[in-house]
Simulated assay, not measured.
Amino acid sequence: MPVFFHYADRVRRDFPELATRTLCLDAIHPGAEVSQAIARFQDVASARLAASAEGGFPEIQAWRRAFAKMGLKPTQHRCAAEALLRRFRKEGALPRRHPLIDLCNAASLAYAIPIAVFDVARIQGVLEVRPASGRETYETFTGELESPEPGEIIFADEDNRAHARRWTNRQSGYSAVRDDTVAAFLVAEALHPSAEEDLCRLLADLEAALGVSWPRSAVGAG
């Protein structure tokens, strides 16, 4: 089931350096084995973190600049990749949730690039990265409802549901992948100088791992 995805003109205008890759997956199930791929990605992240804390990575620095441009404090609201790297550096591991989420989180660690993962069945119509109007609804992982601030960059669908707040900062529990998820939509975004090249490598690595873990899944890249 394809997802129609695009950026508002303002986002493209304000962040011309933005590079994006997407994947559509079907035939997803929670019984896939992903441990070897996760270990491989985590080894890459560990090697990078041994040389420098995540705040020194060019990928993370670019997102910090973007958050500052949006009027956010970069060390208060971190992009998802930085938050994952920070936790991994401190704890040496990440909690397991669902094999697809676990795999994408590990890939995000290795490349320091945020990867959003959505349950396709929970998205209504076009998914757009755009400024919030203030009328959208965002559901947290604990079920609480929030209203994004007007002008805040969000992922939103045609039902005015916000599937992520502060762009790459925090996804919604409403469209998170669950055990009954069948189809998923992945979005990887980067702003650093070698973003296009790194995203191509990330997608190639991720598609290879997905093919091993879910051999019957159809993968559509964009």
Rank of each mutant, 00 (worst) to 15 (best):
D102H: 08
R122F: 00
D159F: 06
A83V: 11
I154H: 06
Y138W: 07
I101Q: 10
L145I: 14
R96V: 14
E82A: 15
A81S: 11
R78T: 12
P114V: 01
E158A: 14
H98T: 14
Q124D: 12
R130H: 07
V129D: 04
E91M: 14
V117C: 05
L127H: 02
D159I: 10
T137G: 06
I101T: 14
F88A: 13
I154F: 06
T142M: 06
L85K: 08
R122H: 05
L109P: 03
C79T: 08
I154K: 10
L94H: 13
A93W: 08
A112Q: 05
G151E: 10
I101H: 12
I153K: 11
A116R: 06
D119F: 02
L94D: 02
F141V: 11
S108L: 07
I123V: 05
L85R: 10
E91Q: 15
L145K: 13
L109A: 08
G134Q: 03
P131Q: 01
L84P: 02
I115G: 07
I115T: 08
R78F: 06
K90C: 12
N160P: 05
I123G: 05
R96Y: 11
D119E: 06
G92Q: 04
A110R: 09
P99H: 11
K90Q: 15
V129Q: 03
A112M: 04
R130D: 10
I154T: 10
A83Y: 08
E152T: 09
L85A: 13
A112D: 03
D159Y: 09
R89N: 15
G125C: 01
F88W: 14
I115D: 02
H98G: 15
P95C: 14
T142N: 08
I101D: 13
L109R: 02
S147T: 15
G134S: 02
A110P: 01
L85V: 12
I123N: 01
E128W: 00
P131Y: 01
